[in-house]
Design a binder for these strands. Structure first.
Length: 458
DNA sequence: AAGGCTGTCAACCGCTGCGTT
DNA sequence: AAACGCAGCGGTTGACAGCCT
């Protein structure tokens, strides 16, 4: 899209029109001495201001941005100056729309890094984090509207291949799984998880992985607006602590892990992209046509839309790799199941390859992928006593609790509770434990509305 | 032509981490 | 150790232009 006016062509508000900061939060937090300074201007920069800033930086370089205001008389805070320089005045900036190559790189980087705009910008010379962020947000909206995958399969494939190449001699997944299996990783961030924090670049999937499992836990403590690795480490800490106050939670964690496994087979595999890349919803996981609060509907819809569902994530090798990882981490102490994901991943990969090579539309039915999705989806509770345990432990009042996993046909689950019919779950439903978090809520970002939960959940 | 919708962009805001005082 | 100042990051918002009905 081309803008009719360039930035400099814009009608800039004159000084009298300018939105003089009646209240600047930055200055409000500053010392009284600083607060006594001139009122700072907000809003668009004028060419004159640009010229002043540019001249100053060329002469003095980028140092203390707050001095700029003092030295030049600009009525702009240092922060604003820095932003203006970094995003508009820097000589090495590349103007214009992103090239196709840049777009692909952004997608690839986002699949690895999530919303780490600054880090992504560092990989795109001449581009700013703001540009990338805007591009991505626009892309998200577009993809949502058109129900197209945010991560094109070929780019995910490429990213996955690169990742495999990068981590050929050491697998984070294996290390983490090993740590989990030996009980020394999840609960001791300082000794184990911390080893990974420093090199997220080399471990692109690392930061997000545990999140799904934790966030699957119904309405715990997580205010998961942030979703970096450290947050998840903190979540691990919280979970550790939670064992004290919620003994059932520990069992639930194991159940959740396995539940994640089940979902990864057919429903909402939430492993790697869930917190970063998946933070922005994948369109085919949105199921706009179904009741967003109806898990069973979600589940069914998911199966019904198997091919569609598989499109952005399950058909990607990256997702497969993370699914494999997910299996490994999610089944602590269950070595027998560790081998299970591999053939499944292969199966899906085969399906993926078939679909890619044939170039079939996502609407095709009866693909191997679909079959697997259908099967695993229908029986995920039956197959997954641990997930059942989670459901049971988290929802003591739920009708689900009254049947054993063996006795629990999927249809029962689908109609398990009348609350699923409701469009908007009530607080009471959460309080009573009737309502498990919607799969959407399994995403870290989806916990934002849990903040409104009653104190018992916070 | 008018109004609504969408995309794009720039800027602001709140927060965090880190170094200094 | 605490307070402070600064740089930087990511989320959000508002303005504007183009398109569509």
């Amino acid at each position: 899209m081309t803008r009719a006016k360039s930035e400099s062509d814009r009608v800039m508000p004159g000084p009298d029109q300018a939105d003089l900061a009646s209240h600047d939060d930055d200055s409000a937090r500053e010392s009284p001495r600083r607060r006594a300074g001139p009122q700072l201007k907000k809003g668009p920069w004028t060419p004159a201001e640009d010229a002043i800033l540019e001249a100053y930086v060329k002469k003095h370089g980028v140092q203390n941005w707050n001095v700029v205001q003092k030295d030049t008389g600009l009525l702009r805070c240092g922060k604003s100056c820095r932003l203006r320089w970094a995003n508009h005045l820097r000589p090495d900036l590349k103007k214009g729309t992103f090239t196709k190559e840049e777009e692909n790189l952004i997608i690839k980087l986002h699949s690895k890094m999530g919303n780490k705009w600054a880090r992504m910008a560092a990989r795109l010379p001449g581009r700013t984090d703001n540009e990338i962020k805007n591009y991505w947000n626009t892309r998200i909206k577009k993809c949502q509207r058109t129900s197209t995958p945010i991560y094109p399969a070929e780019i995910c494939l490429q990213a996955s291949n690169e990742e495999q190449h990068e981590s050929a001699d050491f697998s984070f997944s294996e290390k983490l799984a090993n740590d989990l299996l030996h009980g020394n990783g999840l609960y001791d961030p300082s000794s184990t998880w911390g080893d990974f924090i420093d090199d997220q670049e080399a471990l692109p999937y690392a930061p997000q992985l545990p999140d799904v499992s934790f966030s699957n836990l119904p309405g715990l403590y997580f205010e998961s607006k942030n979703h970096g690795f450290m947050d998840q480490v903190n979540q691990a800490e919280v979970l550790k602590e939670s064992e004290i106050s919620f003994p059932w939670l520990n069992a639930a964690i194991n159940g959740t892990f396995d539940g994640g496994h089940a979902f990864s087979n057919g429903n909402f595999s939430t492993s790697r992209p869930m917190t970063g890349p998946w933070k922005m919803e994948l369109p085919s996981l949105q199921f706009a046509g179904s009741d967003p609060n109806n898990w069973s509907t979600y589940s069914r819809t998911c199966a019904a839309q198997g091919a569609n569902f598989a499109d952005p994530c399950m058909r990607s090798s990256a997702a497969m790799a993370s699914a494999k990882f997910e299996h490994m981490c999610m089944i602590p102490g269950n070595s027998g199941q560790l081998e299970e994901p591999l053939p499944e991943a292969h199966a899906v990969s085969s399906a993926e390859n078939q679909q890619l090579s044939v170039g079939s539309s996502s609407a095709s039915t009866g693909s191997p992928c679909d079959a697997m999705v259908e099967t695993s989806e229908l029986h995920f509770l039956e197959r997954d006593p641990n997930l059942y345990a989670l459901v049971n432990s988290c929802s003591p009042a739920s009708p689900l609790c009254q049947a054993s996993p063996d006795e629990l046909p999927c249809s029962d689950f689908s109609s398990a509770s009348p609350v699923f019919v409701s469009d908007e779950p009530t607080i009471t439903q959460y309080e009573k434990g009737f309502l498990l978090p919607h799969p959407e809520d399994s995403r870290a970002d989806a916990f934002s509305h849990w903040n409104a939960m009653p104190p018992i959940f916070q």
